[in-house]
Design a binder for these strands. Structure first.
Length: 886
RNA sequence: GGGCUCAUAGCACAGCUGGGAUGUGCGUCCGCUUCACGUGCGGAAGGUCACAGGUUCGAGCCCUGUUGGGCCCACCA
């Protein structure tokens, strides 16, 4: 006996209950099972600092759709979840919190700070997970991992030591990006360039004679960062520059510091730009650093880690970089060395986390050498071993891999994987090992100090596809679930994450980490702007779920969107999708109300009507299309088809067609056949929809079946040739066309629905007449007919009856006074015109010799059929016009 | 400077390997208390598929160029 369903679908309450049921039944859990084929997705681990935002919502919806789809198809589906320690993001957050308590991280010391950090993780780390659950994500939570858990740490150490031994990891002094606020180095990828209004300070340095006396001549140049002059060790000009050629090799006096510096020649200088003279500060500018190397210039570091001037800055020691800038400009001006100041807009590198202007500094850091490592990653994508969806992302991918630079992996932070390098307290020997060494291999000393730095967050994320499956242990999970099948992620982290996982997979596992990468875009606000904290235009997915339900949100995020494209978020769209959930709910409710007394049984073939075959054939086709689309990751296209099928074909047509049979209780067999078809087609549609809208579909499925079984572990529908009914499809299409024509005419004539009329169906084709007599039950109802009369000719039909012309059939409705003959004539003339156009087009094509000789036969046949159809329709319309004119 | 990407109805978007602009949501107009749903039903209006060439029997889709958005990388001091 079917349960009673509420009149409108209310997701609140239902969703949590169903999710709990799925958890209790362990449906999300996957165990290694050699008898089944695995299908694996590893989650892009959200930051433990994170709050669920629309980006997560989209990312996780896509993954959940794929995993539920494959699970229903019979795969052993594993969605491996976990979270990321997000070193900088988290450390910044904790420091902020400490600040509220008036504590600096140094006060706590490393141990104390880490204690706080772990406590923080314990308190907030689970928040994002519980939020993902609200989305309906079917992750195997029993396998939840954390990028800094014991296993991941083991994997990190293993990789670090191995790559160090291979020479892929090295320590070197390089100019790196330094964030003076976070007090750490950051990688190139973490630098964000911002346009800022600044100044060009034009400054001149005195040129020295060979005997070091001032020549009275000057070299003028411009700089945006005058304070760096304290660290200048040269001035460069272009070797071919006629203006300065004679000065090359001479020296200048660096003002304020009173240091003699050379004039060097370097191709790097652009003669066209400014005065064609560049001051060289190898310690504080990446380009200058390179110039310095070429000319063997000394590197002078004038800055402390907090961006104040150090002892090398002479009397400016202790000043902040901007304070020093002001003081220096003032003094140069006083000395008459400041030529002019210009306004200048330029790009300034800032730290993407805290927006502080980064300071290029020369520091000893750990790097990963990329030139060899990247090769298999390039090859894999080039040769199709790894597929990127959409394919156009390959271009971005190669743009990155082709220009790759060594990866700075050390961070001067405490929260993260500590670098497994140990320095001998006595002789300073470096030992890289998974654990602290017993004694120094060089001097035998037993005391070591571990490198204080930690690793870039992405170092552990790069190992995620295999570290989560147990690597470096050779677990059965690793053997079974690796390589994973799909990675779903935003195109914005191709470089940060995707590329690094790929080369790490090949290097550590000797195998790709995943077969396909499905990219999605950004979720923007309704004006197309990025959602951001600073703009305050972010929309909280949890709020949407509360208001409209998770299903409506999920559908909103995937419909009408192609892979890799950005999308805009509209409340109206969510509302529309909420309405869709309600629509299915009510259709199901209707079916169940009609099944209250008896459950339908499988009908005899003879009891099935054309309409039943039609909808069966349609859903069968839908199964094929949707499955194909989903296999190709065309998730938005697939769900659009399901939506259209359910709303238009199933609800607006089939249910309406079947109503007369449900209400007429005298023909039990026909009623049973209709109910059976309603139920089976609905179940098929629900199954197809389930990956997208897991909650409503489950609730209805369970109520409909009246059992505890779950749709999420039911079998995915399979296309079945035996459920194809081409003849009935054409038949029903004819009836639909007739009904649409009748409705159309009636609306145009302002005939109220309550006013029923006789409907004459005239056709010289016996077959066509059969179609109408065979479907009379619903045709009569949907055509607002008081009576349907099917006959071979026009006898007995009033001359002023309104006519509807469809292919091979003429329909007449004697509406008497309700019809304005003038208007009717006008309508027919319009129809005549339309047909004329159609005929012209078809004839044009068919009389084109080139078309007939070159186009495929099927296409030609199609056009010929149309020609015949339109010709016939034209004859009828012309006859009717002549008739009315009488 | 280099690369990528987009331009389709008033708005936001789909449109698979080229075959009548096929379509969705919102909006607009007209009509409907039809016993599942007004979170609904029926009907309608609205598009030179940015522009200019080309390939083709045939182009929204392929090629070239132009214009105008967006993104990424580089960072000329």
């Amino acid at each position: 006996m079917a349960k009673e369903l509420a009149k409108t679908y209310d997701p609140s309450g239902i969703e949590d209950r169903l999710y709990q049921k799925w958890l209790d039944k362990k449906y999300f859990h996957a165990e290694v099972d050699e008898s089944k084929k695995p299908f694996t997705i590893v989650i892009p681990p959200p930051n433990i600092t994170g709050q669920l935002h629309m980006g997560h919502a989209l990312d996780n919806t896509l993954q959940d759709i794929l995993i539920r789809f494959k699970r229903m198809q019979g795969y052993n589906a594993l969605w491996q979840p976990g979270t990321d320690h997000a070193s900088i993001a988290t450390e910044v957050k904790i420091i902020e919190k400490l600040k509220e308590e008036g504590i600096r991280k140094e006060d706590l010391g490393r141990e104390g700070f880490l204690e706080r950090a772990w406590a923080w993780r314990k308190e907030y780390g689970g928040r994002i997970v519980s939020q993902l659950k609200k989305m309906g994500s079917s992750c195997d939570w029993d396998r939840e991992r954390f990028t800094m858990d014991e296993g991941c740490n083991k994997a990190v150490n293993e990789v670090f030591v191995k790559m160090y031994k291979k020479g892929y990891i090295y320590k070197g002094s390089r100019i790196i990006n330094w964030c003076p606020v976070c007090n750490t180095s950051i990688s190139d990828a973490e630098v964000e360039y911002q346009e800022q209004a600044g100044h060009f300070w034009h400054i001149k340095y005195p040129i020295l004679n060979d005997d070091d006396t001032e020549s009275g001549e000057y070299l003028i140049f411009a700089t945006t960062r005058p304070e760096t002059m304290l660290g200048d060790t040269a001035v460069a000009v272009h070797p071919e520059d006629e203006r300065y050629k004679h000065l090359i090799g001479k020296n200048l006096m660096l003002p304020l510091m009173n240091r003699k510096i050379p004039i060097v020649a370097d191709e790097y200088v652009d003669r066209e730009f400014g005065t064609g003279v560049v001051k060289i500060t190898p310690g504080h500018d990446p380009n200058d650093f390179e110039v310095g190397k070429r000319h063997d210039l000394p590197i002078i570091n004038i800055m402390n880690d907090n961006a104040t001037i150090n002892a090398n800055g002479g009397k400016y020691e202790g000043m902040d970089r901007y304070e020093a800038r002001e003081a220096i400009v003032k003094e140069l001006d006083a000395m008459g060395l400041l030529v002019k100041i210009e306004d200048h807009v330029h790009n300034v590198g800032t730290h993407d986390r805290c927006k502080t202007t980064v300071e290029p500094l020369v520091k000893a850091q750990w790097f990963v050498k990329m030139d060899e490592l990247i090769k298999p990653a390039q090859k894999a994508v080039r040769e199709g071993e790894i597929r990127l969806v959409p394919e156009s992302m390959q271009k971005t991918y190669f743009n990155w891999t082709d220009n790759i630079r060594d990866w700075c992996i050390s961070r001067q932070l405490w929260w993260g994987h500590r670098i497994p390098a140990y320095y001998c307290d006595k002789c300073g020997e470096t030992v890289v090992a998974k654990a602290a060494p017993e004694k120094c291999p060089k001097c035998g000393e037993t005391h070591f100090t571990q490198d204080p730095d930690t690793l870039d967050t992405w170092f552990s994320s790069a190992l995620w596809p295999f570290s989560t499956l147990g690597w470096p242990e050779q677990t059965k999970e690793l053997k079974y679930f690796y390589p994973t099948d799909v990675l779903v992620t935003g195109y914005d982290i191709i470089f940060f994450w995707v590329i690094r996982m790929i080369f790490s997979g090949y290097e550590q596992m000797g195998e790709k980490p995943f077969k396909t990468v499905l990219f999605h875009g950004l979720v923007r606000d309704d004006k197309g702007r990025k959602m951001s904290k600073s703009l305050g235009n972010g929309i909280d997915p949890l709020e949407i779920i509360k208001q409209y339900g998770a299903d409506a949100l999920r559908l909103t995020l995937v419909t009408g969107n192609a892979p890799g494209n950005d999308m805009r978020f509209y409340y109206e769209k969510v509302e529309a999708n909420r309405n869709f959930a309600n629509k299915i709910w009510n259709a199901s409710r209707f079916i169940m109300m009609n099944m209250e007394e008896t459950q339908p049984t499988k009908p005899e073939a003879a009891d099935l009507k054309p309409a039943d075959h039609w909808i069966t054939s349609r859903v069968n086709r839908l199964i094929k299309d949707v499955t194909e689309n989903m296999e190709k990751y065309e998730l938005g296209v697939a769900v659009q088809k399901i939506y259209d099928f359910i709303w238009d074909e199933f609800c607006d047509w089939y249910i309406e067609m079947v109503k007369p049979r449900l209400y007429a209780k005298d023909d039990a067999k026909s009623r049973n056949a209709a109910l059976y078809t309603l139920k089976t087609v609905l179940i098929d549609a629900l199954k197809l929809l389930h990956p997208y809208m897991p909650f409503v579909t489950e609730e209805i499925f369970c109520t409909l079946q009246d059992e505890e079984e779950s749709i999420m572990v039911s079998d995915w529908p399979v296309y079945d040739e035996a459920r194809n009914f081409a003849k009935e499809e054409t038949e029903i299409e004819t009836i639909k066309e007739a009904i649409r024509g009748i409705r159309n005419v009636r609306t145009e004539m302002n005939v109220p629905p309550s006013k029923k009329a006789q409907v004459f169906v005239v056709s010289d084709s016996e077959e066509k007449r059969g179609v109408f007599t065979g479907n009379n039950d619903f045709f009569k109802a949907l055509a607002y007919a008081s009576e349907v009369i099917v006959q071979a000719d026009k006898s007995g039909i009033a001359d002023d009856a309104v006519s509807v012309v469809i292919a091979h059939v003429n329909i007449y409705m004697p509406l008497g006074d309700l019809v304005d003959l003038e208007k009717e004539l006008e309508r027919l003339k319009k129809e005549e015109q339309r047909l004329e156009g159609e005929l012209k087009r078809v004839n044009g094509m068919l009389s084109n010799e080139k078309f007939v000789s070159k186009a495929p036969e099927a296409k030609i046949a199609e056009e010929k059929a149309k020609l015949e159809k339109y010709t016939k329709m034209m004859e009828q319309v012309k006859a009717q016009i002549a008739n009315l004119a009488k």
